[in-house]
Simulated assay, not measured.
Amino acid sequence: MSAIFNFQSLLIVLVLIICTATYAHGLVPSLIDRNKSGPLGVLWKAARIGERLSPYVSLCCIAMAISMLM
């Protein structure tokens, strides 16, 4: 089943995109910052969400890991 049709899988994909974009922005900030618009602007927005809401994103990661183990 596709991640679009399964809500839990969709949330996992979104959290992973946010975490990956934030990590990539920490390593190579110029790569993410130059693509603020267009299709790759989604990664810039995800990196901003990950930086500004990092405690909540980490709690979401922990909650998703626990729900996957159960």
Rank of each mutant, 00 (worst) to 15 (best):
S9W: 12
M70R: 07
L11S: 05
L53W: 05
V13G: 05
A21S: 03
F5L: 15
S67Q: 12
F5Y: 13
L59K: 04
L11E: 06
I17G: 04
C19A: 15
L11T: 03
V13D: 09
H25C: 09
V57Y: 00
L40A: 13
F7D: 15
I12A: 11
I49N: 02
D33L: 03
M68N: 11
V28G: 03
I17W: 02
A24S: 10
P29W: 01
H25D: 10
W44C: 08
A24V: 14
C19W: 11
L59M: 08
S2A: 08
R48K: 14
Q8Y: 13
F7Q: 14
L40K: 08
I62W: 05
I32M: 01
H25V: 06
N6L: 05
C61R: 13
L10F: 08
W44H: 10
R34L: 12
R48G: 12
V15L: 08
S2P: 15
G38M: 01
L69K: 13
S37E: 15
K45N: 03
N35R: 11
A63C: 07
Y23A: 10
M68T: 14
V15K: 05
S30N: 04
W44V: 08
A3M: 14
L14W: 02
S54C: 06
I18V: 09
A46W: 00
P29H: 00
R34Q: 14
L59Q: 05
A63Q: 02
S9N: 15
L43T: 05
R48N: 13
Q8T: 14
I32C: 01
V15N: 13
W44M: 08
L43G: 05
G38A: 00
A47S: 04
S58Q: 15
S2E: 07
A65V: 04
L16K: 09
V13Y: 03
K36H: 08
V15E: 09
L16C: 09
S9C: 14
L31E: 02
I18W: 01
S2V: 07
A46L: 02
T22D: 02
V13A: 12
F7L: 15
L11P: 02
S37H: 14
V15Q: 10
C19N: 13
P55Y: 02
Y23K: 04
P39M: 13
L40N: 10
V15T: 13
K36Y: 06
S9V: 15
V42H: 00
G50Y: 00
L31A: 02
A24T: 12
E51N: 09
L16Y: 07
A63V: 07
A65E: 01
C61N: 11
P39W: 10
A65C: 06
I32N: 00
C61K: 09
Q8A: 12
S67K: 10
A21C: 04
S30Y: 03
S9Q: 15
S58P: 10
V15C: 11
K36R: 14
F7T: 14
L43C: 08
I66C: 06
V13F: 04
N6H: 04
T22P: 04
F7G: 10
L31H: 01
L31D: 02
G26D: 04
S30C: 04
R34V: 12
S9A: 15
M68G: 09
L59N: 08
C61F: 09
A24F: 05
R34A: 11
C19M: 14
K36Q: 14
G41Y: 00
I66D: 03
S2N: 10
M70Q: 11
M64L: 14
Y23S: 11
W44K: 04
A21M: 02
